[in-house]
Design a protein around this nucleic acid. Structure first.
Lengths: 202, 202
DNA sequence: CTCCTTGTTGAACATCTACTCAACAGCTTA
DNA sequence: TAAGCTGTTGAGTAGATGTTCAACAAGGAG
């Protein structure tokens, strides 16, 4: 932050800017990401931010895309490297391990999306990607006889809706009884894929 | 909006301002409520808004409080006038009948709360009120033998978390398969209170 | 009718923000 | 070493917002 702004290759500088924007968004929310704050945090001039991202909207979209893509990629590799049952367990665990910064990033994306068409498109894309990943996993498990999920898409929608509710509770860090919510999520997922209660929980 | 600003009794003017703020918040979100916009919409000077609400934060809190209190009061009267089963059904129905404006109001409140202590307190208060209402209803039904809800608070937390997830989906109006989500909610509530599947759905 | 309380005005100030652009300076190349 | 491409600067413009405040005027009290 107090370092001199040395000249860098464009790719790297661009990445630094996105990373800084992600960090700020995690703390303050996507709609609070400002070219000034990013520039200050990075120790560069505001003009430089606009050199790489002509409008802040583009930066915000890039920041959200990077954060969300990272999460989806984790789930994707879990799905492709682990047996279906373990993959599902890992996916639920990763969701339950989210912290309030992750939660607030998503919340702010949802709120900002209606006013930012580009962001809205990216949010849709990422939510759809998450849905596809989970749907594919459930379909695979069903085909292999590991799960009983005759309607993988419907089950995935329901599970993700529950995850969204968890994100809301998490972002509030309020009176939520996390134990109850964790139980609800494990129970619902188990029931949704036809597993005996308690058989998925680690 | 083009009407002359006639002199009014303070109570009434104050109410008009809050109502206008609620209307704006429903469209744009709580964090987009602006003294200028409220004044313009109402056809008065910006100074008048600040005369009744010295800071915009206070106006935002009042707007949210009014909107949320209205919803909770509906649920409360349902609980006190209807038999437990009907009250629960009405409560679920009212939630499923929310529109995306209602949803966005809550979403924006959740996102804005961390930066606005007064709003955070009000949001907590309203969420806790909703929790109390539902908990009371489940406890009452359990005591009367209508439900089987040995842990009313836990059940209420789980149901409300699911509602929050529904609110998120609603605010996005995206690829959500509403039919699936409605089914999930009815099923989960029925299961949570020990009712046979399908027995609560109207 | 006149006074006086008070609802109301609207301009002014300060702050924050996005975005622009001409000038500067660090690297690479000849 | 000298030249030029380009990463970088930082001041400047424009607009949105919160907040203040002295002055205005509508309606009731005397």
């Amino acid at each position: 932050m107090s370092k001199k702004a040395t000249r860098r290759p464009p790719e790297q500088r661009r990445q630094e800017i996105v990373d800084t924007a992600v960090a700020l968004a995690n703390t303050l929310g996507l709609d609070r990401v400002t070219s000034r704050d990013v520039a200050n945090e990075l120790g560069v001039a505001t003009g430089l931010v606009h050199h790489y991202f002509p409008t802040v909207d583009e930066l915000v979209v890039a920041a959200f895309a990077q954060a969300a893509t990272g999460q989806n990629e984790q789930d994707e590799t879990a799905c492709s490297t682990l047996p279906a049952l373990d993959a599902l367990r890992a996916l639920v665990q990763r969701t339950l391990a989210m912290d309030s910064a992750d939660a607030r990033l998503w919340m702010s994306a949802w709120v900002a999306a209606p006013r930012r068409p580009e962001l809205a498109r990216e949010v849709d894309k990422q939510m759809l990607a998450a849905l596809d990943i989970l749907t594919g996993l459930l379909a695979k498990g069903h085909a292999l006889g590991v799960f009983d999920a005759p309607n993988p898409t419907g089950s995935a929608v329901r599970i993700l809706t529950l995850f969204d509710g968890f994100v809301v509770q998490l972002s509030m860090r309020s009176h939520a009884a996390y134990g109850d919510i964790h139980s609800l999520i494990w129970d619902t997922v188990e029931r949704e894929v036809g597993l005996p209660a308690g058989s998925l929980r680690p």
